[in-house]
Design a binder for these strands. Sequence first.
DNA 1: TGTTGTTACGGAAAACGTAAATATT
DNA 2: AATATTTACGTTTTCCGTAACAACA
Lengths: 315, 315
Amino acid sequence: MNLQQFRFVRETIRRDFNLTEAARMLYTSQPGVSKAIIEFEDELGVKIFERHGKRIKGLTKPGLAVSQVIDRIMREVDNLKKVSEEFARRDEGGLVIACTHTQARYLLPRVIPAFRKQFPKVHLSLAEGSPAQLAEMVLHEHADVAIATEALALTPGLATLPVYTWEHTVVVRPDHPLAELTSSAARALSLEQLAEYPIVTYDRAFTGRSTIDEVFATQGIHPDIVLEAIDADVIKTYVDVGLGIGIIAGVAFDPRRDTGLVGLPVGHLFGTHTTRVGIKQGVFLRDYVYTFLEMLASSLTRAVVQDAVQGTEEA
Amino acid sequence: MNLQQFRFVRETIRRDFNLTEAARMLYTSQPGVSKAIIEFEDELGVKIFERHGKRIKGLTKPGLAVSQVIDRIMREVDNLKKVSEEFARRDEGGLVIACTHTQARYLLPRVIPAFRKQFPKVHLSLAEGSPAQLAEMVLHEHADVAIATEALALTPGLATLPVYTWEHTVVVRPDHPLAELTSSAARALSLEQLAEYPIVTYDRAFTGRSTIDEVFATQGIHPDIVLEAIDADVIKTYVDVGLGIGIIAGVAFDPRRDTGLVGLPVGHLFGTHTTRVGIKQGVFLRDYVYTFLEMLASSLTRAVVQDAVQGTEEA
DNA sequence: TGTTGTTACGGAAAACGTAAATATT
DNA sequence: AATATTTACGTTTTCCGTAACAACA
């Protein structure tokens, strides 16, 4: 029994039971994989793979059980590498942050300069995508952490923790009727009033868009959504050219910089939202990842994060 | 990186950082172990062991982290063997039950005949000991399950579940004054009354003895305990020869068979006790172990046991 | 007939044991 | 001086690649 056999079994399953593919992915010969797996099965005394003649079709029942244990072993082996890297080069390495445009553009700039200063040797990369894609990236370990408002908390195998809460803001041109509202009238703004104007807002999968739809739907109102985009900059641009009013995340509106627009907070209409960070269960996190998370939100202490990541196992 | 290196590291730690001992335990040469460990450290890029010159003194900080991951890996590797054995020979194997004399003599005879009938090829063995020893046996995987009333629930790394509850019984000779009590008077029996007579009961570490001591102590009564034994048969024997009155577990008194003695239930004095089964966290249990546990108590279903064993990880 | 898995075989690499050297207590 | 670890070295075993073969679709 050896680690190589574990790798071969795992990769064969991942490549849909194609030994040739598995061998290629692991940069080795296909007969070698075949032989190693057969020897492994002999040693265990059970067949792992269902074979129709010479074609491997799937897992046997014991094979399923074995593959689950192998997954756990290989995950720990990966952790072993990370653990030792952590000590060998405590503050070098990579940090891949999977996030939506909103987070990359409005949240992370507050954090990343300080992080870079403390860990100048850590190679940072931002991977953008839809919340569902971000979750996948973390699950496949293409990213270390995901930051988004939607979807993360629902993904099995992911530990999620709250980063901050925010509300939506309506943005309009200064010459728009809504721009004239007194601040108390703005606070009483209704869904019906909003629905009178064409709306520019987020794409379906992003940044609290789902609740916008729900809120309108439960009130039986059908807003005229003229344009959807994944980022607030695009939305603001089209509001600016007079396409309609914009509904964006509060964090994405800065009165100092967005001088050509007027912002009206509408938390009373669409509620408060929680942006969360998602981390794969059971993985070992480098020291600087904990530091990054604590910079992101002071509530994300090392103890809190460790608890969330190590606590529950997926089924 | 390979499994052999993991074994060497683990065994070296277990043998108090003595390579020579570790090599002997693993039936290999000492230089081989040395070399493998050094290569492993080189590959990881960290020193696992603290060395004073050529003497290994203990773990380094990264070594501690590494060894914890290795423990998890090796535990899963052991599980791999058990999983495949389970499927290879579903109803053959061994079941080591670590229990106190009370359980071996009075509880298990109700279960084991049926179990043997269903799994005739499973080799059973009963390992007796003090509750603390039983817990150790399970933690070291010298036994599969431990059954006892004391200590188990307090042992870290052990999942425990209730099997049954019971009360103490006082046993006396038929010619003893207490034997004359009406059943209602027996139910009102007081600690003071008991303390009038010499007492024969369990050894300190066994079968609810601790609560007997506590109950007397909180009442400020100092009973005359003339003899302590680890099993009820011995206690009953000495009661029979007139040494005093006996206090034993209710399960250990059978009016049909213990015809030479009279039993008086004293749950109202010493409370109810719960006998528990203890299983090591994280281990894979053979199918017949689940069946055994369910025979032991119908509440111990497979789901309940799996939850308890897999649920919480020790620190 | 092309694709995929198994068997056969030979060279390279590694694993492991013995012997010797070196350091520690 | 005795005990323990590392280094050196040679043998044995295992690993792994190529080539050939067999079976599936």
